[in-house]
Design a protein around this nucleic acid. Sequence first.
DNA 1: CCTACCGATCGGTAGG
DNA 2: CCTACCGATCGGTAGG
Lengths: 207, 207
Amino acid sequence: MTLVNPNPILQSLIAEQLVSDPASARGRLLNEAARLFRDKGYERTTVRDLAAAVGIQSGSLFHHFRTKEEILKAVMVETIRLNTALMQAAADQFADGKEKLRALVRTELESINGQTGEAMAVLVYEWRSLSESSRAEVLELRDIYEDLWLSALRQLADAGQLGADPFITRRMLTGALSWTVTWYRPERGGLSLDGLTDQVMAMLGLA
Amino acid sequence: MTLVNPNPILQSLIAEQLVSDPASARGRLLNEAARLFRDKGYERTTVRDLAAAVGIQSGSLFHHFRTKEEILKAVMVETIRLNTALMQAAADQFADGKEKLRALVRTELESINGQTGEAMAVLVYEWRSLSESSRAEVLELRDIYEDLWLSALRQLADAGQLGADPFITRRMLTGALSWTVTWYRPERGGLSLDGLTDQVMAMLGLA
DNA sequence: CCTACCGATCGGTAGG
DNA sequence: CCTACCGATCGGTAGG
């Protein structure tokens, strides 16, 4: 099951200049940065690592970005823009609260572990590496993203289908889903993304 | 509700030399290190930060530890030893699976957010900062800790009370509970530790 | 536990 | 986008 084809969504975001074209120099750098930040962490990733990943010299990075932290911010901003659009599209496919939540869980799991986005985990784990001034900007975008979750969870709560408070449930899910990046290895066989989504829903008593 | 008084447990671990006396130079350093690693992260914490926190010069640190990473390892080892003992004591108070799980959740939440231990979050979030050779040692201790969880979760699963797979459920809980360190602020009023525990149980359909 | 210091590496710059 | 390089800071050491 693929709920949403990310490509047309990505294309329209690129057209609106909300997300960098992955084929552009900036886009390639941000994608490599996302991968490195996710795998090694922001602090452990050096500007020389970043430059090497796209095949340029470290000094040349600063033609595109003024600071290393600006790269982190750009990764976060573009990641959340893309994922908000993907989540919106996923949720819009369903009216039923349970199905809506399932679509959100599945889409976030895909963003955290998959190729598309690839940096949802960065957004969660590298928050404290972001400067105070950058945080405000990312927080605004994040609120829109979180509202998608909260409205689905509130819908379920109003229908008496949710065991715990919607806000708390979302926070628990943020931790639980992002943590999958440390252990979920679909390529080793075992649980598929749909199977993992089923487990999350079953855990919430929404199987 | 306080399930377990940690003091006698801590005292006996100190007596067995499994955990450093918090009054000793080593113990004070490890406690400060745990706090700094939790708040700023291992990479962002410098040996000068660590030294300043206990009021010595940075060079003097290396009289107690050969490397900075050895400090991280010691924090992790002692934290997991203490918390395994606390979790064991908490679980042993109950025979019923649901009550056992509740005691585990509550104790882990206290370790992550409270004063006792204070470094459970370090164990979760700084894993990749640990050297390959240190990991093996910590992993062995971690397996014992995880077995406490798995036996309680299996007990519930066998009784048909658990929605999802015990292993998956534990992994979800690891992420969900450790993530509370980023948002749970009991001192600002609102949810108590017991209230938060209730929410976790309710989320799992075990209210 | 301190003083004094090290080599390496870091993020970032200047000029082309 | 490269070459050449910087000041600052890092983890860690030597000798007392």
